[in-house]
Amino acid sequence: MTTRRTVGFVLTLICVAILASCGGKSPNESVPLIFAAASLSDVLTESAEIYESDTGKRVDFSFGGSIALANQIVKLGAPADGVLFAGGEPRRLIREAGLESAADAPWLISTSLVVIGGADALPINSLNDLVISGERVAVANPELAPAGRYAMQALANAGVSVDIGLQLIFTSDVRAALAAVESGNAKYGIVYGTDAYSSARVVTVMEIDSFAGDYFFTGIAGAQNGRAAQTFINYVVDEPETREVLESAGFDISVKRIGPGKPGG
């Protein structure tokens, strides 16, 4: 009977798939999952490769806007073992939820805030010039990513008002703002200096001196693989090879660990 055979075949296929998926996914148990700012995606991916080839241990990442990710952890119970977030707001969320690892003091590294333009963009002298240019400006959504908050604050501090929606384009995270400028869909963007550094298709047209973006690294207290996450984080900041990755991307890691605590390994 071809009929029954076909139906049987489909059912068998599905059963095999379920069995295979139940058996195949267990290694994740011991792999720490780290939630990290989109602006760190390339340096962390590279660092994780170095870490894995050195120690044989893997780490998984979820990249995105730091505020969005912090909310996933604090409000929705996302299973993060460690975080590497930008800005004060995500840090406050993690700390107030009592999730900051007590065993190790968190790290801070920093970057600058800059205005970028497409390859042919003209230099500008002030944020006011940026607005007067009338060109579209891409920034991360301030409700999802600290880079967007910094950008909005910088605009506010400079006393310029920008038409949100018409001139200002909000993206889901800072790397998406960078991509919008790279693709030419926005003429300018306000991103971290390190984002500008990572791309050959954009130029920095102005530095915004008053802002330095801080990153906050910590294991998550009580997480299943919190220690493993902290070990990776310490490795990234301590090891010469991964330090080199961060520094050559433009991050300032001379900034220390907050509070007491000896760097682990």
Binding site: N28, L33, A38, S41, D60, F61, S62, F63, G64, Q72, A78, T171, S172, D173, R175, A176, L178, A179, E182, S183, S199
Partner: peptide, 23 residues
């Protein structure tokens, strides 16, 4: 979510790649 290697499906990977300019 959109966690590579854990929950990142084809559509969410495409979304990430578009967002990060990896055309």
């Amino acid at each position: 979510g959109n966690i590579p290697g854990r929950t990142q499906t084809v559509p969410s990977a495409i979304f990430t790649r578009i967002s990060s300019g990896d055309t």
